[in-house]
């Protein structure tokens, strides 16, 4: 887990991705949507939100307009409920680049539009992926925990005139 230390003004993007029709793969998109609703209710206008089925190269241009980007995605990795990690540049080729990872975007953004924003990825544990609407109960619980965590962090970051840090400590 990471701690956030607010020290200056920043533009923040929260970007969830995944397929809402594949059970727990909806976690990333719902993470973004729930926080967007919360930000709207709280009038936190300095936060921006985006969501898509998957990341694509043009997102390198999108994220270059921000100082800090939080990606959110469902995870099948061995984590308990959710985790947050700093995105490291990932330059390895894939057979197909139809699908981009946050690390791919970081590398592409750095090459084309540097300076690259500070990027983090919120991994939310999912369990089922079949073509069916509605998440599992455990995944929904994990989503709640991740959203609550991010609300706390963002409130802290936005405490001073709705401004946030550019220097998170992982």
């Amino acid at each position: 887990m990471i701690d956030f230390i607010p020290t200056g003004v920043a533009r923040i993007l929260i970007y969830g991705f995944g397929n809402p029709s594949r059970k727990d793969d909806a976690l990333g998109v719902l993470f973004s949507e729930e926080l967007e609703q919360w930000a709207s209710d709280k009038s936190y206008k300095s936060l921006s939100f985006d969501a898509n089925y998957q990341l694509a190269p043009e997102d390198a241009a999108v994220i270059s307009d921000y100082d800090i980007v939080f990606f959110a995605d469902a995870s099948q990795e061995d984590i308990h409920d959710f985790s947050v990690e700093r995105v490291m540049e990932h330059q390895k080729a894939e057979f197909s680049l139809h699908y981009f990872t946050p690390g791919n975007l970081a590398a592409l953004c750095q090459e084309l539009f540097h300076p690259c924003p500070e990027m983090y990825e919120v991994h939310i544990k999912g369990y089922e992926w079949q073509l069916e609407e509605g998440m599992t109960k455990k995944a929904r619980n994990n989503l709640g925990l991740a959203v609550d965590f991010m609300k706390t962090q963002l409130k802290s970051l936005l405490a001073k005139d709705h401004t946030v840090s550019k220097n998170f400590i992982a």
Partner: peptide
């Protein structure tokens, strides 16, 4: 042999693709 390589050596081309 990937888009990052293209971005590094042919930046204008990579920017065109993104835009």
């Amino acid at each position: 042999r990937n888009i990052i390589g293209v971005a590094r050596e042919h930046k204008d081309l990579a920017v065109q693709g993104v835009m």
